[in-house]
Amino acid sequence: MIKIIYWHIKQRKMFIFWWSLAIIGFIGLNLAFYPSFKDQADQLEKAFSQLSDTAIAFFSDTGEFFSPEGYLSSQVFYLVLPMLLSILSITLSNSQFAKEERDGTLELLLSKPISRIKLLNVKIASSLSILIGIGSIATLSIIVICKIVKIDVPLLNIALASLMSTIFAITIASITYMLNALGSFGRAASIGIASAVALVGYILSSLLTVVSWLEWPAKALPFYYYRPAEILTSSYNWRNLAYYLMVIFSCYIISIFAFRKRDIG
């Protein structure tokens, strides 16, 4: 199994390289200007406070933009990193599964002595390895850039916020895998549904400050439990992690049962 996972990763080395480069670039670009804002943080904060609550809510989960935690959260953790990792996870899950089913190579693999469950596990494990790998590269680059531009946030909190972004992306990947394993949706639909779960969750959670009744629908979606600012300020309720683990586990079990006995192609 390790050999096959290694093969999967090896096949996607250029994919991994370009995604890592893109994420480092995005993070670098978003954090590089912090020194220019740092000295005028109070004035800028006042100017930004003139914005409507809705506008603020879409870009920051702290309501602050220029404190070290607020800057880091609004520029990287609240939107850019989880969305980039989610796009990566949806792209990856689809290319590993739905694309192979559409192209017919999934049948070729299943003509070999490998069970469907083992094949699914191999695909999931290789996607997971790539996501964790790129997530780790993102974590390292944030830590290094924060050191360079002197964003004064504990390194452990940065690492934990990055980890939570990766877990959020893994949750989206597990939903994509489940939709692909069910097989009745098709590739485009699984991309659409998984993207909607990520995006609608972000929109609903952002609007909560102004529309309180959205809390219940927002609570059903993964983004609600993703609160990077709380992690950066050490006030996160880690029991929220249970939600992610439950969704990932449920999607995995459904994937196994759905894929075990369905028609391929």
């Binding site: 050999k3 096959i4 093969w7 096949q11 192209d103 017919g104 190579t105 049948e107 070729l108 693999l109 003509s111 070999k112 002595p113 490998i114």
Partner: peptide, 28 residues
Amino acid sequence: VGYLSGDFVAYPKLTGKQFLDYMSAYSL
């Protein structure tokens, strides 16, 4: 068991040798 379909498809970015090595990883 050896299986082949008429509309055989494989991974276009792999060479023939890489593809056969990849298949052997599945063939045990």
